[in-house]
Simulated scan of single mutants.
Amino acid sequence: MTAIFADVLESTREVGTSRFSASNVANILGMQQQDLAELAGVHRNTLRTHPESPKLQSALRDLMRVLSAAMAVESDLQRAIFLVKNEPIPAFRHKTLLQLVQEGRTDDVIGYLESISTGFVG
Rank of each mutant, 00 (worst) to 15 (best):
M1G: 15
T2M: 14
I4M: 08
I4S: 10
V8W: 02
L9E: 08
L9W: 04
T12P: 05
R13M: 10
E14W: 06
E14L: 15
G16K: 10
T17G: 07
T17F: 09
S21F: 11
N24F: 07
A26H: 03
L29P: 01
M31Q: 12
Q32W: 08
D35Q: 08
E38W: 04
A40K: 02
V42S: 04
H43S: 09
R44S: 09
N45K: 11
N45V: 13
R48A: 13
P51T: 11
P51K: 09
S53I: 07
K55R: 15
K55F: 07
S58F: 08
R61K: 09
R61H: 11
L63R: 02
L67V: 05
L67I: 07
L67C: 06
S68M: 08
A69L: 01
A70F: 02
M71K: 02
M71P: 01
E74V: 07
Q78H: 06
F82A: 05
L83P: 01
K85N: 04
N86Y: 14
N86G: 10
I89Q: 12
A91M: 10
F92W: 11
R93P: 04
R93C: 12
H94N: 15
L97G: 00
L100P: 01
Q102A: 15
G104M: 10
G104C: 10
G104W: 13
D108G: 01
V109F: 01
G111A: 12
G111L: 05
G111N: 14
Y112M: 02
Y112E: 00
L113Y: 01
S115I: 00
S117G: 03
T118D: 00
G119Q: 02
F120I: 12
G122S: 11
